[in-house]
Amino acid sequence: MKIYDLGKVTVGLVIFFLVFTFPLYYNMGKATPPPEPNIQTEAIAAMSEPVCVENTEYMRANHMKLLNEWRTSVVRNSNRAYPAFTGVRYEMSLSNTCMECHSNKEKFCDSCHNYAGVSPYCWECHLQPKEMK
């Protein structure tokens, strides 16, 4: 059967195809290795068993939620004590507690945040830690 206005239809379909397959040719088939957040810091190395305030799986998905809860607790209720799953009580503080162990922001925080295209606004208020050189 005859296809009417084949020229215009073809142009439209080519645009459609290029738009919806954009990621395929944008990445040009090159694999990008996933980030490996670095936990090789002096503070962690000094621990007999590396342990965070919650388990790794929880922290991977929920650390931002935890930080937000900490912020609310500290700012609104002046409660700085966080009972961790191990029973140890930690001070709710990004700069003092989190960054004490994870002092390598560039290799730890930024590695995933850059990969996922997330730009948290922690450091608009908090002082950005000086990297351990």
Binding site: P34, P35, E57, R60, A61, N62, M64, K65, C112, Y115, A116, V118
Partner: peptide, 10 residues
């Protein structure tokens, strides 16, 4: 229910 974004992006 948060999910592991980095694993998803992989």
């Amino acid at each position: 229910v948060h999910v592991d974004i980095v694993a998803i992006r992989e």
